[in-house]
Design a protein around this nucleic acid. Structure first.
Length: 203
DNA sequence: ATCAAGATTACCT
DNA sequence: GGTAATCTTGATA
């Protein structure tokens, strides 16, 4: 009944966790009596400051990125482009500086809530449903994730992941990442093949 | 104190 | 396919 992912899922190598994150269920429950918002992770990108110039941690520890240097199992939420928040899953052991950007999700429950947060209305079309969670900043807007959530412990009860069947390798697409200018050649974006909620298909 | 860049999105043609 | 919007962060002085 309780198939929440535990610490040891997160403390592994960032690329292994990134691949395994596909298909897992992201859960956010604001308080004990509030509705559970749930969505299936369908697209992620790995960042590793040790060898990856695009990672926020490539420059070393700063006030913004310090949570990425903790051991795996925390949320890293950052603000960018004057408008947007993006959420990441911290991975690895302490001082690794690795994390995984959540780029695309398939809504499971809380669709009216996502719709309200994204479009200020509760009833949406099928086309708008696809547009709820198919981008890193869209996910944060839909779940209302902002800087208050930076450092959230994923082993606790507010935000966590539920296990699910592993996605077979032939259903996973591995390709280059989106929206970066450095280390563009690293094939560290992973998504579920033929899933409608992926933000952008590989060329 | 000032500056440039940014793990994006929505809207335009 | 192109780009304006918008402001925090980290670096430099």
């Amino acid at each position: 009944m309780n198939n929440k992912l535990k610490k040891d899922f997160y403390t592994r190598n960032v690329l292994a966790v990134a691949k395994d994150l596909l298909g897992k269920i992201f859960v956010y429950q604001e308080s004990e009596n509030s509705e559970k918002l749930m969505a299936r992770i369908v697209e992620v990108e790995a960042y590793d400051g040790n060898i990856d110039e695009a990672a926020h941690t490539f420059i070393g520890k700063t006030e913004r990125n310090k949570i990425m240097f903790e051991e795996g199992g925390f949320l890293y939420v950052y603000f960018t482009y004057g408008k947007h928040f993006c959420a990441n899953i911290v991975t690895g052991v302490k001082d690794h500086g690795t994390a995984i950007l959540l780029r695309g999700m398939e809504p499971i429950s809380g669709i009216n809530k996502y719709a309200f947060n994204r479009f200020a209305k509760r009833e949406i079309t099928e086309k708008e449903k696809i547009n709820l969670l198919n981008g890193p900043a869209k996910i944060c807007q839909a779940f209302n994730l902002d800087r208050k959530f930076n450092g959230t412990n994923l082993i606790a009860n507010k935000i966590y992941l539920l296990n699910s069947d592993k996605i077979p390798g032939d259903k996973i697409v591995q390709t280059t990442r989106i929206g970066i200018k450095k280390s563009v050649e690293l094939p560290w974006r992973f998504y579920i093949k033929d899933n409608k909620y992926v933000s952008k298909l590989a060329k």
